[in-house]
Design a binder for these strands. Structure first.
Lengths: 104, 104
DNA sequence: CATACATATGAACACTTATTGATATGTTTG
DNA sequence: CAAACATATCAATAAGTGTTCATATGTATG
């Protein structure tokens, strides 16, 4: 794909779908919480003060979009970001937004 | 902010807000359409086959988040991405997602 | 100043989605 | 195999959002 080419309508839809998933504060917090090390569902729920059910629901969406992966370890399932692309995306965007904070 | 620091809850909210706005196919198409050169509302509507009203509504949201800027030129108003940060963000993410397309 | 053109706004609707509470599935241990 | 623990799923609800249609605001021109 060219540097500044307008994505096809299909690509746009896929891209939007990814953005949409990242566009929820709870999901973003879950992602950042799993950024450094894999975390179990329970740890996420406790660490972010969310219900286990809610965490599981969000993880399903994130899993469906291949933004996270889960590895079972006995009874627990540890989730981490799917790959370096995803984590880079998050970190880059976080930087963009931080440097972007002009007054409103 | 540190490279891998977990953003504060406030930052997370702001970041999510930005992602959320990018998470709509129509808005994304508008943004990409204005990526190379400023475009009038009418041009956007015609070029993307959207109603003038819809384009205007979306532009208001994008304006509110300082993702686009509009410059009046006689009767028309030309919109362009707010700054290099925003365009870089878009291009970077587009690349990420393109390289990310594994089968599902 | 009236008309035409370009953009913005308001109300309403259909639709999606985040959250909760209850329950089911799966996994280990006694 | 039963009990305990961890995670996933189901159903329901409340809140948010994209889109449309009608109308208003603003700007130039005769």
């Amino acid at each position: 794909m060219n540097k500044l080419a307008i994505p096809s309508q299909l690509d746009t839809t896929i891209l939007a779908e990814t953005f949409r998933l990242l566009g929820d504060p709870t999901r973003l917090r879950i992602l950042f919480f799993c950024l450094d090390e894999p975390r179990s569902v329970g740890d996420i729920a406790t660490g972010l003060d969310l219900s286990q059910s809610l965490v599981s629901h969000h993880l399903r969406l994130l899993r469906g979009a291949r933004l996270v992966r889960g590895n079972r370890q006995a009874k627990q399932i540890f989730y981490e970001l799917a790959d370096k692309h995803v984590s880079d995306m998050l970190v880059d965007m976080a930087h963009h937004v931080c440097e972007d904070q002009s007054d409103d």
